[in-house]
């Protein structure tokens, strides 16, 4: 079991996070389900009465590995929105946009 995915899964369960976060790791829903079953088998979580709860082992694992998932440099995962970047205008300049450029 991949450590990053397990950490993400435990974090989703504990903090009611969005399960689609795991889809970003290129997992199919079936893989996510099987992966969750595996986490039950391995004792990281329990599942009964339609409730999934972290076990002590799960809590420890999450505490240990969660910081690593957040260490990422912002520049690595947020792409600059270059197409919407505009040059700042000087304070006293009056800006008159071209009518044909209006999108409304």
């Amino acid at each position: 079991m991949n450590e990053l995915n397990l950490t993400l899964l435990l974090n989703i369960i504990k903090n009611k996070g969005n399960v689609l976060r795991l889809k970003r790791e290129k997992l199919s829903f079936r893989q996510i389900a099987e992966f969750t079953e595996q986490a039950v088998t391995d004792g990281f979580i329990t599942y009964s009465d339609n409730k999934i709860i972290l076990t002590e082992l799960g809590e420890e694992f999450l505490e240990l590995h969660l910081p690593a998932t957040k260490k990422k440099n912002k520049a690595e995962w947020i792409e600059p929105d270059i197409k919407n970047k505009i040059k700042p205008y000087p304070k006293n300049e009056v800006f008159l946009p071209n009518r044909s450029e209006f999108s409304f």
Binding site: N18, V19, S28, F29, I32, A33, T36, N50, K51, I52
Partner: peptide, 28 residues
């Protein structure tokens, strides 16, 4: 929660052997 529902639906698929069907990916 969604993750609990996903685990449940996967168990229904397994119980009924739906994962063996042709269109199972789309259905799942």
């Amino acid at each position: 929660e969604a993750i609990e529902a996903i685990l449940s639906i996967n168990r229904i698929f397994k119980k009924n052997k739906w994962h063996e069907k042709d269109a199972q990916d789309l259905a799942m």
